[in-house]
Design a protein around this nucleic acid. Structure first.
Length: 514
RNA sequence: GAUCUCGUAGCUCAGCCGGUAGAGCAUUUGACUUUUAAUCAAAGGGUCUCGGGUUCGAAUCCCGACGAGAUCACCA
């Protein structure tokens, strides 16, 4: 097929469109359609009884109005069955020529309904509910309105009585580029996204209940701070300055804590100019929240309760299937120190080791290293290579080396460590939190160490943010903060293996379309 | 960015030891007033992702481009 040519089916639909107009029917009417019910309400609640004389008495839904997309048509002579799909599901319609015609003029039924209608059209119907002799709740249509004509053939996916699906649209490229088709046609896709919304709503509700204030902070930033990552760069024309798309919002939320908010949160769309794969999209969502006068122990308690609630809200249970495992989000979660985890899974006690000793350990464990890696990075490598994958059930890994945590407060009792935890679930990090560093002089030194790492070749090291330091100098209360990967959490709660399955429109390389 | 695999009708796929395309669903025509992956009968629909090469001849073999998926690297 050439680039601008229409297919046979598209031409036929355009011809049908013309014929509909010739019949005096507007294929795209402007007026609202007075929908009274969703398909699910009727299917779940319709009742009828059989009277003594054998006739049926229909008890409810005898004057309803529904609208939806036409998904299936079965002609049966002077009658017809259809299925429409609305926001909540599908329901069957039953139409009879006699009842949809005036006098002996069958044009409307024989032409519009039988010939000119296509799968994918939006229609509205008025009628009454009944059960067919096969027991399916059906709307007996007494009035019919075309609401919007479809000009492209929708893939037809069928499901049999046992639930076997035939011809599902399975090409991932098709599904992601034309998500509207995927959502319309593939059963279950919508549910994943509805679960994600329930999850986000539950989080918001929980944070609000506990005094959280939702805020917005800049996406366009002068200095891409709060995380170690390569940013996207853009340009502001009027100011003639470069801007970075945010890689994290951490430093801005802490500025708000300095400004007197005690508990702020933001669902932050972050952008990182790095590789894409099953678990990475260039833009992704992280929930960050910061609570004044708290520490990371409080944050662990709060987080496990939050996740327990979220699992219940989205799935109705705390025990969820994830891949081949059942993961329990029921609080409390196990807590293990980073060094203890390393000792448990490698046999090496890295506590107090210097860079040379750590390189030696890496060599023995067959972990490749390079010159730019400092103590923190080496320990991080050992953990992610040898330990991370073992933590299937939610587990807090606590107390990280100072060098890999430039925004974290020094440990109150363990020298060289900071008060930080990461939450591991299904062998992957879903949250990262700490007692926030609020000592401005210490913070300045940490930034300077980062600057040195950057010179040494670490392209993930952080920039020095002087305004943030100034804010800390005015004084920030002791605070605990956390970042939770919302897409990753959604993957866990919906048992999806790819981030693309929990993003409506995952990033795709542009492709020339017809 | 690297490696591997894939790209045939609207959808799902077959054909791939080279001889210029096939099925099911969808579409069109006809039959049928409770069917339901409706059924029955007939028909139409493809620059086989794009561009080169080898060959008498390429969907099929080779090279390149584009797009996708998986694995790896980087990261959340």
């Amino acid at each position: 097929m050439g680039h601008n040519e229409l297919t046979e089916q598209e031409i036929l639909r355009r011809e049908s469109l013309d014929k509909i107009r010739e019949l005096g029917i507007d294929p795209y009417p402007a007026a609202l359609y007075p929908v009274t019910h969703l398909s699910s309400e009727i299917k779940e609640n319709y009742k009828e009884e059989i009277l003594e004389d054998g006739t049926k008495n229909r008890l409810n839904f005898q004057d309803v109005c529904l609208a939806g997309r036409l998904m299936n048509m079965r002609e049966a002579g002077k009658a017809m069955f259809m299925n429409i799909q609305d926001a909540d599901g599908r329901i069957q319609l039953y139409l009879r020529r006699e009842e949809l015609s005036e006098n002996d003029d069958y044009t409307f039924f024989d032409q519009l309904i039988k010939k000119l209608l296509d799968i994918g059209d939006y229609i509205g119907v008025k009628g009454f509910a009944f059960k067919t002799k096969t027991g399916e709740t059906t709307i007996h249509v007494t009035s019919f309105t075309l609401l919007s004509k479809s000009l492209k053939p929708l893939p037809v996916v069928k499901t049999d009585a046992e639930g076997n699906v035939f011809d599902a649209v399975s090409d991932p490229e098709f599904r992601y580029r034309q998500r509207y088709v995927d959502l319309t046609v593939n059963q279950g896709v919508k549910e994943v996204f509805l679960k994600r919304t329930k999850m986000v709503n539950a989080i918001r509700e929980y944070l609000n209940e506990h005094g959280g204030i939702e805020v917005d902070t800049p996406v366009l930033q002068n200095i891409p701070g709060g995380a170690a990552a390569r940013p996207f760069i853009t340009h502001h024309n009027a100011l003639d300055v470069p801007f970075y798309l945010r890689i994290a919002n951490e430093l801005y939320l802490k500025r708000l804590i300095v400004g007197g908010f005690d508990f702020v949160y933001e669902f932050s769309r972050n952008f990182r100019n790095e590789g894409m794969d099953r678990t990475h999209n260039p833009e992704f969502t992280v929930l960050e929240f910061y609570v004044a006068y708290k520490d990371y122990f409080w944050m662990m308690d709060f987080t496990e309760k939050l996740l327990e609630k979220v699992a219940l809200a989205s799935n109705g249970t705390t025990d969820l299937p994830v891949g081949n495992n059942i993961i329990s989000f029921k609080a409390p979660y196990k807590r293990i120190a980073l060094y203890d985890a390393i000792k448990e899974y490698t046999g090496f006690d890295v506590n107090g080791m210097d860079e040379t000793a750590l390189r030696d350990v890496c060599k023995k464990l067959n972990i490749p290293t390079d010159e730019s890696m400092g103590v923190g990075k080496l320990i991080d490598e050992i953990f992610s290579e040898k330990c991370e994958k073992n933590f299937i059930q939610p587990t807090f890994i606590i107390d990280y080396p100072e060098e890999m945590s430039p925004l974290t407060k020094k440990h109150r009792s363990k020298p060289g460590l900071v008060e930080r935890f990461e939450l591991m679930v299904n062998g992957k990090e879903v949250a990262n939190a700490y007692s926030e560093l609020n000592d401005p002089i210490d913070q300045r030194m940490r930034f300077e160490e980062q600057a040195q790492l950057m010179e040494r070749g670490d392209d993930e090291a952080m920039f020095i943010d002087h305004d943030f330091l100034r804010a800390l100098e005015y004084g920030m209360p002791p605070t605990s903060g956390i970042g939770i990967g919302i897409d990753r959490l959604a993957m866990l709660l919906t048992n999806q293996q790819s981030i693309q399955e929990v993003l409506f429109f995952p990033q795709m390389k542009p492709k020339q379309e017809n």
